[in-house]
Design a binder for these strands. Structure first.
Lengths: 344, 344
DNA sequence: CTTTTCCATGTGAACGTGAACATCCGAACG
DNA sequence: CGTTCGGATGTTCACGTTCACATGGAAAAG
């Protein structure tokens, strides 16, 4: 009455075949949706699989097809809202497409750490790679390792030998800066991300584009590390000089730290200083004052990255999806320049 | 001069064997650190591997050993600081131990979604599971699916058939509540997490324990969803009644939303209302006022989870590591009860 | 009525590795 | 000097699946 007691080994395609009274190959065909199977045969096989609680063996399949059905994600700064949201979306999308995802975090941004993480992914036999750790070095290392795995980066790297997801960070940064200019600010400081980050560079470029276009001067951007703590530190330094009326931070965390420092220094945001961030993390609208920032669709980015990579794996032509342009969200942290603070 | 051009197939253990003039089994032994290999032979094999750029085939190995060297993580609310930090730590620790990590996110907390995610992980042939989505239902489903995979949960579930990481959420919540009581607060409201979350329940229990011990009354806790937006919503409702002088929120995001609402309602934190959170996310100390909260070591939790799971996979006895007790961090959002607001 | 074609299915081999067992050889032992 | 032992290595097989090719039969084509 009860199904055969398992004898240690999991049921294989052959066990199913025996029970359904067909060859193992027929079972394989059912498994892979081969068209030339009589309905009645297919049903018998399916019943047998059900009865045995058969589960295909991924390793055996991978061995013979030499396809792992796994994609790798190289990421940095996980733990932060943006990257981890994108990763979650990547996993969801991959799962839906029948793929597995393996993530490797960059412990540090040293070449050694990058090589380590990449080796781990290569060892894992990933079919493709999504590079979410958009540091310039990563791509150098990637090129240096002579890895022939197709990969997709979340930022344009200037290299054209792979596909990049088009998120127009430059436009976002430019919009943020232009917003401040439109409010009458002439002295705008940029608190940028780390030097070797492509995202940081793009946002800086957008900032500078807007500044130059408006024919304004600016200090050299301060290079930060994305953290709120650094923002606080930078804010403390900045509030000693006060030769600016607005700051554009390359991400929200730094912007929030910045506002904290200004508050401590007795400066009012936005009356004395306007602050604009980037990312629109969930707390951005709940801090005091609510943060003006540039909204990014992290989940959408993750989804598209998967779509792009899968289409490449399938050898499909590049489907030029339209660029994602992040949108400025104006909240309370930015306001018109206050007369008393204009330095002319 | 140049190494053999690859003929489509990647070099196998046999190619290495041929080049090193040994049997393929000897190569296998070198690969697995077998002791009985002459040094000279080992070196010849290693040289051959180097020359051919040999990489072991994971699928073949998994097929013959029936071990995938992969652990699965079931998670929810990724994108938030805590879970994603733990996941990152899990990946680091697993990588160090030579394991791969596969994560499945819970799209919703419905049984169907849970089954989906678990199926995905089982399909992936994970050797063990770390359950980071500490919802009661998950364990019911897990039990219902009759999965024989060893798993580790990040919270005590009351079920004793598996290992749980000991993070004393109850003690943390109790400390937070006691802190408010010590400040003279008698009317404390608890903004809890979703009902079916084990963590939420533990924090609520800690809260109630402290309340009962101090012989205070309290409203039934408000059940939230962990988000800052919900905190804001709850804060708006709460500020209509004002029959309390302090709120203990089950996580920082809700606490921050709460403070936002109080600010909007003209209430001053901490003069009119004290607010305490839980988690100590990076922005907690930078919001206004800096948030008093309970600090959690998310990375440490992740590391320990891996250690625990691996020791179980190896069949080692349960190494009773000491409990992690999260620590109260007092900042500006909590203060002594203000005389004018005491309702007696 | 024979030949061709195509559908439904079966047979055998291969994928790359590790386990079990076999073999060879030199050293230790009596 | 024969026997035993164990270190170093080789041989064969199995893991579960898909692929290439083979087979039988029925329908279509001549």
């Amino acid at each position: 009455m009860s199904p055969e007691p398992q004898k240690g080994r999991a049921p294989s395609i052959r066990d199913v075949a025996r029970l359904a009274d067909v060859s193992h190959q027929t079972v394989s065909r059912v498994l892979n949706g081969h068209p030339s199977i009589r309905d009645e045969t297919r049903q018998r096989v399916l019943d047998a699989m059900e009865a045995l609680k058969y589960r295909p063996n991924r390793a055996a399949r991978a061995l013979v097809t030499s396809r792992s059905r796994t994609i790798g994600v190289l990421s940095a700064t996980t733990g932060e809202y943006g990257p981890s949201s994108s990763i979650a979306a990547i996993e969801d999308a991959a799962r839906e497409a029948g793929y597995f995802v393996n993530t490797a975090n960059l412990a540090a941004s040293t070449p050694a750490a990058i090589v380590d993480a990449l080796k781990h992914l290569v060892l894992q036999d990933v079919e493709g790679l999504i590079v979410m750790a958009p540091q310039v070095r990563v791509f150098d290392v990637l090129a240096g390792m002579a890895i022939d795995i197709p990969y997709v980066s979340l930022q344009s790297t200037g290299q054209s030998d792979h596909r990049a997801l088009a998120v127009d960070q430059i436009a976002g940064a430019r919009a943020a800066t232009q917003h401040l200019i439109d409010l009458g600010h002439h002295e705008i400081v940029h608190l940028a991300g780390p030097q070797d980050w492509i995202e940081a560079e793009a946002r800086m470029r957008g900032f500078l584009d807007a500044i130059i276009e408006a024919d304004l001067r600016t200090h050299p951007p301060i290079l930060g590390d994305w953290t709120a703590d650094f923002g606080y530190y930078a804010g403390r330094e900045l509030s000693r000089y006060r030769d600016f009326s607005a700051v554009f931070a390359a991400n929200d965390l730094m912007a929030i730290g910045l506002m904290h420092a200004f508050r401590d220094a007795g400066l009012d945001v936005p009356r004395d200083v306007s602050v604009v961030g980037f990312d629109d993390i969930p707390v951005a609208q709940h801090v005091s004052p609510p943060l003006t920032t540039v909204h990014q669709e992290f989940r959408e980015v993750g989804r598209r990255a998967v779509a792009l990579l899968l289409s490449e794996l399938r050898g499909e032509p590049v489907s030029q999806s339209e660029e994602i342009v992040p949108a400025l969200v104006v909240r309370g942290s930015s306001g018109p320049v206050h007369a008393a603070l204009v330095h002319y």
